[in-house]
Amino acid sequence: MGKLIINEWIKIFRKISTSAMIGMLLLSVIGIGALFKYQEETNPMQDNPNWEQDIEAQITSDQENLTSIGGNNTQLKMHYERQIALNQYRLQHDIAPESEQHIWSFVGDAQPLISLAGLFTIIVAAGIVASEFSSGTIKLLLIRPINRMKILLSKYLTVLLFGVSMLAIIYLFSSIVGLILFGLPSSDVSHLAYSNGEVVERNVAINLVGEYFLSSIDLLMIATMAFMISSVFRNSSFAVGISLFLLFMGGTATMLLASRFEWAKYILFANTDLSVYFDGVPPIDGMTLSFSIFMLLVYFFIFHLFAFGVFAKRDVAA
């Protein structure tokens, strides 16, 4: 299995398009860094000496909103409760809201690039089976004394490995760029998280690793779907097209449905953002972390049932 993954890895990394993908990621990190640096230079953020008063004012306004609106809308209610709890924690422990840019805030700012990493992972997932069929090399691959399941599994694991590498590149490179441009934080910082009605402090660097992984769950699921389409239909453009459409539209469409219908919670995209259970509010009332994980596993299993079922039985006539 190890050797099969090495094979797939070599095939991916000998492609020029892969170098272009990595290059784009690196350039984007530098670009975002330059943008933030420029902003910082032109209007440097001042420490707000009156932050305590501001936060108190914010709390009062939030509490007003909570009593007026919160009764009807559970989501808004949770949102305000969270805001209030976090702000009260700040007052109690004398933690001013962060105003300076530093390495960790930048690693956090680089998070939108995860979508780009996801895009690349989807492209790789969509091509990894389909391209073997379109080039005809699938024939020389399947006449080896290796079970077809193993060949497909090695391809899927390679996709996962590729996705994780992309995340690692963003995380590591943005910490390097962040360190060079903004330096270390002047005082100890920790992340304030609101979980199960309580406020907890977490280590920033580790919390960021967690955030990176949590925000790539939808990408994992969509890459898995792209892989399934690639294996079933042997057509990489179809796989890329459908997957990207769902990546960009799926979330929005699900949120629209979620506001009207309760069954929307069974839709894949209602469950892909697990971070709401650690630090936020779920899209539909009554959804729990275990429910979402269960739904994700069901989808994951179905995708692989199709991918492996079709691949193992197929008559190869390419």
Partner: peptide, 11 residues
């Protein structure tokens, strides 16, 4: 070799 010997052209 089944039909044409198709190899990975980028290797």
């Amino acid at each position: 070799i089944v039909e044409n010997p198709e190899m990975y052209k980028h290797l």
